[in-house]
Each structure stands twice: as structure tokens, then as C-alpha cells.
């Protein structure tokens, strides 16, 4: 598992953890059954607070990416590839809902947003 935390980023650290780990799971880099380090151990090694790691792990669990087995720890969930696609879509959609409300606050139409999105993709 690779994690690079940026303290200068605007993104909260738990969000950074969540995004980096979920991407690694959804890309298949972390396989089903992979055991995540215990929360307190991870916090110490990453030099972040315990609650930060806890939040990230909880978010991963809520998205169905990891399972907690009491007394044993957290493990990457086993899932089929179509299920993986569904989870990925769900996560992207959630982010988009957020972004869209931002675009709406400027009064942009969907066509205008799509045009801008095309530009952003080629940057």
C-alpha cells in the first residue's frame, strides 16, 4: 500500500487517505483479503492523528471497499469486477454531485459544463 500525504493540500488528510487507498483497491493493486495496518499503528507511521485514520477506514468500509473483522482487523473486500465498476461509479457520482453544485452556483448550464469538462480533460 502506497500513501503520500500532503500537509499543504486543501484536502483534509482523511480524504487523502481514503482517495489513495480506494483508488488502489479499485485498480486492483490491493487485492481482496489484503490486511490493512491497525488504525493506531498506521497513525503513528503516517504521523497523523488516530481519528484521521479511523475516519478514512470508516469511509472505506461505508463504501464497501473493506470489511472489519472484530479482533482481527480490516481487510480489503472480495468483489466481482462488475461490482467494482458499480462502486467506482458511485464514488465518482458522489464527487460529481459536489462539483455540480459548485458549477450551479455560477449559473452554468450542463452544456457549458460539458464544454469546460472537455477542456479540463485535455489539460
Amino acid at each position: 500500500m502506497n500513501i503520500a500525504i500532503s500537509n499543504a493540500s486543501e484536502k483534509p488528510i482523511y480524504q487523502q487517505l481514503f482517495e489513495q487507498i480506494s483508488a488502489q483497491i479499485l485498480k486492483g493493486e490491493l487485492e481482496g483479503g489484503y490486511s490493512l495496518p491497525p488504525i493506531r499503528q498506521a497513525a503513528k507511521e503516517l504521523r497523523v492523528s488516530i481519528i484521521t485514520v479511523k475516519k478514512a477506514w470508516e469511509e472505506l468500509e461505508r463504501c464497501g471497499l473493506i470489511n472489519t473483522i472484530t479482533g482481527k482487523g480490516c481487510f480489503v473486500a472480495e468483489f466481482l469486477s462488475e461490482e467494482m465498476g458499480r462502486i467506482r461509479e458511485e464514488m465518482v457520482l458522489k464527487q460529481m454531485v459536489n462539483d455540480v453544485s459548485y458549477y450551479k452556483s455560477f449559473g452554468l448550464t450542463i452544456e457549458e459544463v460539458i464544454e469546460l469538462l472537455k477542456k479540463a480533460y485535455t489539460v
Binding site: P12, I13, Y14, R47, V48, S49, I51, T52, K55
Partner: peptide, 21 residues
Amino acid sequence: KCADFITFIENGQIIHSSEKD
């Protein structure tokens, strides 16, 4: 870096006490 909770005191009163984030 490492605190889980922050308690902020100003002029003898607690302004805020909660999780750091």
C-alpha cells in the same frame, strides 16, 4: 500532525473543543 482533539481557550473561556479536523 498528531493531535486527535483540540481545545481552544481564549480569555478564560473555552471557544471550541472538538476533533481536530
